[in-house]
């Protein structure tokens, strides 16, 4: 099967939807003619022109606010924040305007807007360019939160995301941009709220998204004697808890691997939900692996020590079986 990178797959999905929907515009820093800092918008400018690919100044608050207004008045903007760390600059527009407009207008207005940003550690990108801030967005009612761990999911979820009538936060993992996988079928559209079960198993359930999902798949190759079920929920909001519950009811053991900071993380939420709904199915404590609760270091060895690695995940799987 043809292999393409995650970056290409999502870019193709945006192009497909832009062809189908003339209201879609894309705002970002260097995402126009230059094709984006990661080449993640390459060739879109050439196809769709300066009117739809709008280069902005480095002013996230301004162009995100502009996009909220554009969305409320009929367009479907994609706001490209490049690094999710800088969502902090425009959080008020996302949290106080975009997520709430549909509700406070009693449904008279909606905000069909997609905020796209890259997240996660890569090669010592350090304190300001490494965070996985999806728990921030998961916390806010009115936002849908999407990430992915392979080209098919990235493509299919982006196509769904650009058909949503209200705000979607779409997060790419920087380390996965260049990673290749099976190319999606052109017609692929993946609905929100449906987890991917990467691998079925009977001994232990592992839940992970984005880069951590790929690391889990590597880790289970090192534990061939343990039958591990690997689940990538894909959309964090809405979260497919039923698939996770069903798996835990089968296996009785749950490990969550999450690249977000540990406190109030994606892992916290899944752990709490499972503790609440599946207590009597659990044969061992729920375990979580998160990064250390520290600022991302620049030093590559320190960064490696902070972020969950494949051997650590494999060891956690073995330990949990011994509980």
């Amino acid at each position: 099967m043809k292999q393409i990178s995650n970056l290409e797959a999502v870019r193709d999905a945006i192009a497909m939807e832009m062809r189908a929907n003339p209201d879609i515009i894309l705002l970002g820093e260097g995402t126009g003619e230059r094709g984006g800092s990661f080449a993640h918008t390459k060739n879109l400018y050439q196809e769709f022109g300066a009117k739809r690919l709008i280069d902005t100044p480095i002013a996230e608050l301004g162009f995100t606010g502009l996009a909220v207004g554009a969305a409320a008045t009929g367009l479907h903007p994609i706001v490209d924040l490049m690094f999710v760390d800088f969502a902090a600059e425009c959080m008020s527009q996302i949290v106080n305007q975009a997520s709430k407009l549909h509700y406070v207008s009693n449904g008279q207005s909606c905000v069909p807007m997609l905020v796209r940003a890259a997240m996660g550690t890569i090669k010592g990108a350090a304190a300001h360019h490494s965070s996985c801030l999806y728990p921030w967005f998961m916390h806010i009612p009115g936002l849908k939160v999407v990430t992915y761990s392979n080209p098919v999911d990235g493509y299919g979820l982006m196509r769904s995301a650009l058909r949503e009538p209200n705000p979607v936060i779409f997060l790419d993992h920087k380390t996965l941009y260049s990673v290749k996988g099976d190319a999606p079928d052109e017609e692929t559209v993946i609905p929100f709220g449906k987890a991917r079960v990467y691998k079925e198993g009977t001994d232990l359930t592992v839940v992970a998204v984005a880069l951590m999902a790929q690391r889990v798949l590597e880790a289970v190759k090192q534990t061939p004697d343990i039958s591990v079920e690997v689940i990538d929920p894909r959309t964090l909001v809405p979260l497919d808890l039923e698939t996770i519950f069903a798996s835990v009811r089968k296996t009785g053991r749950l490990l969550i691997v999450d690249e977000a900071y540990p406190v109030c993380s994606f892992a916290s939420e899944v752990a709490a939900q499972v503790a609440s709904e599946c207590l009597y199915d659990l044969d061992a404590p729920v375990r979580r692996i998160n990064p250390k609760a520290i600022t991302h270091p620049f030093s590559p060895p320190l960064e490696q020590a902070m972020i969950p690695q494949v051997p650590q995940i494999a060891q956690a799987i073995r330990d949990l079986m011994e509980e």
Partner: peptide
Amino acid sequence: GRRMVSPRARR
């Protein structure tokens, strides 16, 4: 020593 029984085992 105190013995721990998992909820699943209890069930």
